[in-house]
Design a protein around this nucleic acid. Structure first.
Lengths: 140, 140
DNA sequence: ATAGCTGCAAATGCTTTGCAAGGCC
DNA sequence: GGCCTTGCAAAGCATTTGCAGCTAT
């Protein structure tokens, strides 16, 4: 039990320091929520609420800062699915998404389950950065 | 000259009335900007600015109302490419986009220039509504 | 010691809303 | 006439920013 906890926390600390991020209480706790267990999709507001529900005290500004720092450090990936809020994905590998426009739920689609071919050349003077496939779904 | 103008305006009026939209000055003028000429990608702010530059007086609230009304009527399509502003596309057919994340320019990719295959079934209880491919590009 | 973080409150940017006045059918 | 639209100002959200005080290294 204690062994597991220690290992998990050490692992998280390594994750942060390896990316040059200082170990602050807030970052460690948010990392604990994000990088323990399965892949997750969160918004700033969601993460703040979840933290609060676990007795973690963080300001919303810090949640935003942390999400951006983690993204810059390559620990998270931004996803653009609706124009209201910004989503962050703990799965940083190339992959795509189902987006339930009613419940606002995001689900991963493994990269190898989607084949995309773009036959048109990108606009003059630009290079392709990322291809995002969002499959919008609604309750049947 | 007059013939062309008349025909264009009549055509626009038909477009609106056919969709059950009342002919107000603002709707006709905005429709004139949107549906005359090539396909376009606009945000509310852009359309408002463009209207202003042509001496068309419309409030921003009305621009938003109109964009939504036109969308509901099937004359426009919403596009989600960034989480800051909402884009509207006069091309309502199925197709995809290049999005220049630096200049915020949107370019169409004809549907038949993109092949997408999703091998994963949509989440339990949902059906696919739309598949959106956004190719993010940056200046070389 | 000091560069970097945090938290608060205020500011920002996009979008929506409430409501009175005006316009279309 | 009656219902729909418009315009304004205010409100609403998500997000960012300025800054004073704190903290990791």
């Amino acid at each position: 039990m204690w062994g597991v906890m220690r290992r998990t926390n050490d692992h998280l600390d390594d994750l942060l320091t390896a990316r040059g991020l200082r170990l602050t209480r807030q970052r460690r706790q948010l990392a604990g929520l994000l990088f323990t267990g399965n892949d997750r999709h969160v918004t700033a507001e969601m993460l703040k609420r979840e933290a609060a529900s676990q007795g973690i005290r963080v300001s919303l500004a810090t949640v935003y800062n942390t999400l951006h720092n983690f993204t810059r450090a390559g620990l998270l990936r931004r996803i653009n699915v609706d124009s209201v809020r910004t989503w962050f994905d703990t799965n940083t590998t190339v992959h795509h998404h189902f987006f339930n426009t009613r419940s606002l739920e995001l689900t991963d689609i493994p990269q190898d389950h989607v084949s995309v071919d773009v036959l048109t050349a990108p606009p003059e003077g630009t290079t392709i950065d990322q291809v995002a496939v969002v499959v919008r779904v609604t309750p049947r």
